[in-house]
């Protein structure tokens, strides 16, 4: 409750929440405002925003409605962000918790795996995964999750390393509780706050990674994602720059919203760090 009140008092958190709510609103009402297929032909290609009252944000080089793609794209971007983050956080917590709790050779082994993932630039790894497994939207989402977990694992491990030696964990050991209980009920709830905050960073990066893939035309071309739209605008960047700029601003704002929420969470969950500001 105290954390919630602190969250509601912080201006960045409120602005971030408002932006995210707007994106959520777009995603939720896409079907209602634009019931037709956003990837279907709608009118003359490359009409400037405002030129035709039917297309307030104009049309892309294939004559598709940019506003419709923007609304439907919000769904895709949010979905990718949330699912990929969930995958990354789950893998990261599992790896980090086991490594940090047991230490010793288990820790060494798992951390070498983590480092192996970290030494490769994650976009490169993502390209490899997409090249091998195809570029369906599900594959892309899972692949983004798979390249994003190592920092989560390291963070969780660090928290576990300090928490596992705390007296209350030892007290539970003496009480005869199982390792599973110690990890899930005792240590994890105490280790979670920084991981939750970091998850917002993972989510922002996941949305960006998908856009980057789409810009290279390596993402699923059959879904109306923002990245795809930017990619479509690439060829006409010098004359009809709005095709890329409109979804670009959408991505920028969404990521700003996610980051602000993350910062608000951080201030709310780590009140001691926030009080200095």
């Amino acid at each position: 409750m105290r954390a919630l009140r602190a969250y509601l008092r912080s201006p960045p958190a409120l602005i971030g929440s408002a932006i995210l709510l707007a994106v959520l609103f777009m995603a939720a009402t896409a079907q209602w405002f634009y019931p037709n297929d956003p990837l279907g032909l709608a009118g003359r290609p490359l009409q400037w925003p405002g030129a035709n009252p039917r297309f307030p944000l104009g049309t892309d080089p294939s004559g598709r409605d940019i506003a419709a793609q923007l609304f439907h794209g919000a769904r895709v971007s949010l979905l990718i962000g949330i699912v990929a983050t969930a995958i990354a956080v789950l893998i990261g917590i599992a790896m980090g918790a086991v490594a940090g709790f047991y230490g010793g050779w288990v820790d060494t082994g798992l951390m070498r795996v983590t480092e192996a993932f970290q030494t490769l630039p994650n976009f490169l790894l993502l390209l490899v995964l997409v090249a091998v497994f195809g570029s369906g939207i599900e594959t892309v989402t899972v692949a983004i999750g798979l390249v994003s977990w190592p920092p989560v694992a390291r963070l969780t491990r660090a928290e576990f390393l300090t928490l596992r030696t705390r007296e209350f964990v030892q007290a539970c050991r003496v009480q005869g509780l199982s390792d599973a209980h110690l990890i899930l009920r005792e240590v994890l709830p105490n280790a979670l706050p920084p991981v939750i905050v970091y998850a917002s960073v993972v989510m922002a990066v996941a949305i960006l990674l998908e856009s980057a893939l789409a810009f290279l035309q390596l993402s699923d071309p059959n879904v109306p994602s923002w990245g795809n739209l930017i990619g479509l605008g690439r060829n006409v960047l010098r004359t009809e720059w709005y095709v890329s700029a409109i979804p670009g601003v959408a991505i920028l704002l969404t990521i700003l919203g996610v980051s602000l929420v993350g910062q608000g969470l951080n201030d709310a969950l780590n009140p001691r760090l926030a009080s200095g500001r």
Binding site: E167, F168, A171, V174, Q175, L177, S178, E186, N190
Partner: peptide
């Protein structure tokens, strides 16, 4: 069984006091 030194560190801050007493017998 053991009684620990630091009364602030030896209880899990996120769990109810009764649950921490009962968890040993439950296990």
């Amino acid at each position: 069984q053991m009684v620990f030194q630091d009364p602030y560190a030896s209880l899990n801050p996120r769990r109810r006091a009764g649950a921490q007493v009962a968890q040993g017998p439950i296990a």
